[in-house]
Write a protein that binds this DNA or RNA. Structure first.
Lengths: 242, 242
DNA sequence: GCTGTTTATAGTCAACGTGACTATTAAAGA
DNA sequence: TCTTTAATAGTCACGTTGACTATAAACAGC
């Protein structure tokens, strides 16, 4: 089955689809674009597009992300981008056979809703997950898969810092967990756990942020070199004992 | 970028590649086939092949698995098959642009090395991971990714039973963990943990296997309905405290 | 049969992580 | 100044886990 006779295989179109998440106003938001073209014209969809002839899926995903969000290439190159899975149902696109590699990306809360790429995608905006209406193609399914993957990975990786600006307080980090998991966490316990995990966060030498907040000023932290969380930070009320 | 102008995208070939694992003789083995055709002819490779026009990647993976192993369709349909990730480097195939969706599969130790599918693949055999020489394409990378994914999933899922026959002893289950992780586990502690996890295994009503073994006969268990392991069964010596 | 080996199973104990709290400190707003 | 809000410090009991020891039930060899 691995012969390379040109008639032995079917040509497919290959796309990437991106579930780009951010935490905004106490809710987990996802980036959606309004489709301007034929299948599902006018519907909201995840950003994405076709692979160029010499692009890998990851390269294409970062390119699309830069185009769609208007972020600088250097910023996009540093973002957490994770391949989710590939969707290949024969009928997932009404027109033709399209195989799509889905990615999940995490970005800190961005100043403006979003810029717009070329003249192709009509609009782009942040929408709280759960308030997205029906989406084009199987994008609701992709979004659902991405959401649960991100939630699960917060348990045993350090990627929560990907939702935070370069310097952040432990309160901000905790609210990332609380927003993604949609649960409340005990503040002292969260703090104890995060600080007890070597390399998760590291204190910024001097400074404590006074201005905006209306409580005791919090210390600032940066993301540390660790990527995994051992032992994991399990979310509560997830149908398990202890 | 999501227009459907037929000239807007490049056609790709799409394949599936399978990392099929089993535990044989105290080692984790992977199923390899010897390529009979042009690119990398004579080299060992993971089984796989092109998607048929109306197949999803998962359907194609199960079809290839059945063809390559000679297992009955019903058996293949019940196996644990998990999408790993998609490999899309532009140069991963020297001939053309091929995007491959990789899967990992777990099978119990099978009686015979393996049957052979059509007349296409020259040979198929089980090889201990780590004793595979160089592999065709980027299959060494895929195998490596599959191996670490399987090892990680043993920690927080119940899929270890996928390596076991329908009825098994706790000693056999433990040796699956020990083989995949390549570490020794304390037997009483392993037993306590497995039995304390509701739905992981359930005792077979009557019977204890006496024949083959040369110690006290062990009780037989079946895989239970649970799929997740909460709290996880963390592997030791993995660079973390406790 | 007896004895040693092998494996399964039972049980103990201390260390650690975690959930549930309470208390204190330091800012902003009334 | 007093209240409110949030950060930080600290306590305590419980459950899980790692490291052990002990017993039971088979077989192999003498």
């Amino acid at each position: 089955m691995k012969g390379y006779d040109p008639h032995a295989f079917e040509p497919f179109a290959v796309t990437v689809d991106l579930a780009v998440f951010t935490v905004r106003g106490g809710a987990l938001n996802v980036l959606l674009i309004r489709r301007g073209q034929d299948p599902y014209a006018g519907a909201w969809a995840l950003p994405g597009g076709f692979l160029l002839p010499r692009e890998s899926a990851e390269t294409a995903a970062r390119r699309e992300l830069a185009e769609e969000t208007g972020l600088a290439e250097a910023v996009v190159a540093a973002l957490h981008l994770e391949q989710l899975r590939t969707y290949s149902d024969p009928d997932r696109d009404p027109r033709m056979r399209v195989v799509s590699v889905a990615f999940a990306a995490l970005v800190p809360d961005m100043p403006e809703p979003v810029a717009e790429g070329g003249g192709d995608a009509a609009q782009a905006r942040w929408v709280p997950v759960g308030e997205t209406g029906p989406l084009a193609f199987d994008h609701a399914r992709i979004l659902s898969d991405a959401r649960s993957r991100i939630g699960a990975k917060l348990e045993y990786t350090c990627l929560a810092t990907g939702f935070c600006p370069p310097e952040f307080t432990l309160g901000e980090l905790q609210s990332v967990y609380e927003t993604v998991w949609d649960t409340a966490l005990d503040r002292p316990n969260f703090r104890r756990k995060v600080l007890a995990t070597p390399g998760f966060v590291e204190a910024v030498p001097g400074a404590a942020r006074l201005t905006g907040g209306r409580g005791k000023p919090a210390a600032l932290y940066r993301a540390g070199p660790a990527t995994a969380l051992h032992p994991p930070l399990l979310r509560p009320t997830e149908g398990h004992a202890q």
